[in-house]
Simulated scan of single mutants.
Amino acid sequence: MADPINNGVEIVTSKPLLARKVWYFIQDVNEPVGSPAVLPAWQTDGTTTYGGSMVDEQTKQGRVVAKSTDEHSVELSQYYAPKDTSINIIKNSKAKGDYVKVWRVEVDESLAEVEGDHNVYPAEFGYGLVDELELSDGDDFVETSYTLNIAGTLKSGKFPLTDEDLAQLEAIYNYERPGETTGNFDNRPPTPPN
Rank of each mutant, 00 (worst) to 15 (best):
residue 7 N to D: 03
residue 7 N to S: 12
residue 8 G to K: 08
residue 8 G to W: 05
residue 9 V to K: 07
residue 11 I to V: 14
residue 11 I to F: 13
residue 15 K to S: 08
residue 19 A to W: 03
residue 19 A to V: 12
residue 21 K to Q: 08
residue 22 V to D: 00
residue 23 W to T: 09
residue 23 W to D: 01
residue 24 Y to P: 00
residue 26 I to D: 02
residue 26 I to H: 00
residue 30 N to F: 01
residue 30 N to Q: 12
residue 31 E to S: 15
residue 34 G to M: 02
residue 34 G to N: 02
residue 35 S to V: 04
residue 36 P to D: 08
residue 37 A to Q: 01
residue 39 L to I: 15
residue 40 P to R: 01
residue 41 A to N: 12
residue 42 W to V: 15
residue 44 T to I: 11
residue 44 T to Y: 04
residue 45 D to T: 13
residue 48 T to K: 01
residue 48 T to S: 08
residue 49 T to F: 09
residue 50 Y to L: 13
residue 52 G to W: 02
residue 52 G to V: 00
residue 55 V to K: 08
residue 55 V to G: 05
residue 58 Q to H: 03
residue 59 T to K: 00
residue 59 T to V: 02
residue 60 K to V: 00
residue 60 K to S: 00
residue 61 Q to C: 03
residue 66 A to M: 06
residue 67 K to E: 10
residue 67 K to F: 02
residue 67 K to V: 14
residue 67 K to I: 09
residue 69 T to G: 06
residue 71 E to M: 00
residue 71 E to N: 14
residue 73 S to M: 02
residue 73 S to W: 10
residue 74 V to G: 06
residue 74 V to I: 15
residue 77 S to A: 10
residue 78 Q to C: 15
residue 78 Q to N: 11
residue 78 Q to Y: 01
residue 80 Y to H: 08
residue 80 Y to V: 13
residue 89 I to C: 07
residue 90 I to P: 02
residue 91 K to W: 02
residue 91 K to M: 04
residue 92 N to L: 04
residue 93 S to M: 02
residue 93 S to E: 01
residue 94 K to W: 08
residue 95 A to I: 07
residue 95 A to K: 15
residue 95 A to V: 03
residue 95 A to Y: 10
residue 96 K to M: 11
residue 96 K to W: 11
residue 97 G to K: 11
residue 98 D to Q: 12
residue 98 D to I: 04
residue 100 V to M: 04
residue 100 V to R: 07
residue 101 K to T: 01
residue 102 V to D: 01
residue 104 R to C: 01
residue 107 V to T: 07
residue 107 V to N: 07
residue 108 D to S: 07
residue 113 E to P: 04
residue 114 V to D: 10
residue 116 G to L: 09
residue 119 N to Y: 15
residue 119 N to T: 14
residue 119 N to L: 10
residue 120 V to P: 05
residue 121 Y to D: 13
residue 121 Y to E: 10
residue 122 P to R: 02
residue 123 A to K: 05
residue 124 E to M: 04
residue 126 G to A: 06
residue 127 Y to N: 13
residue 128 G to T: 13
residue 131 D to R: 02
residue 134 E to A: 06
residue 134 E to N: 05
residue 139 D to M: 05
residue 143 E to K: 09
residue 143 E to Y: 05
residue 146 Y to E: 11
residue 147 T to C: 07
residue 147 T to L: 10
residue 148 L to T: 13
residue 148 L to Q: 11
residue 150 I to L: 13
residue 150 I to R: 11
residue 152 G to R: 06
residue 153 T to M: 13
residue 154 L to V: 09
residue 154 L to I: 05
residue 156 S to I: 07
residue 156 S to L: 08
residue 156 S to F: 14
residue 158 K to G: 04
residue 161 L to R: 05
residue 162 T to M: 01
residue 163 D to F: 01
residue 163 D to P: 00
residue 164 E to T: 10
residue 165 D to L: 12
residue 167 A to F: 06
residue 168 Q to L: 15
residue 169 L to P: 00
residue 169 L to N: 03
residue 170 E to C: 08
residue 170 E to D: 12
residue 170 E to S: 10
residue 172 I to W: 02
residue 173 Y to T: 11
residue 175 Y to G: 11
residue 176 E to Q: 11
residue 178 P to C: 11
residue 180 E to A: 14
residue 180 E to Q: 15
residue 181 T to Q: 13
residue 181 T to N: 12
residue 182 T to P: 00
residue 182 T to N: 09
residue 186 D to L: 14
residue 187 N to A: 15
residue 187 N to W: 11
residue 188 R to T: 09
residue 190 P to A: 11
residue 191 T to Y: 06
residue 191 T to I: 13
residue 191 T to C: 04
residue 194 N to V: 15
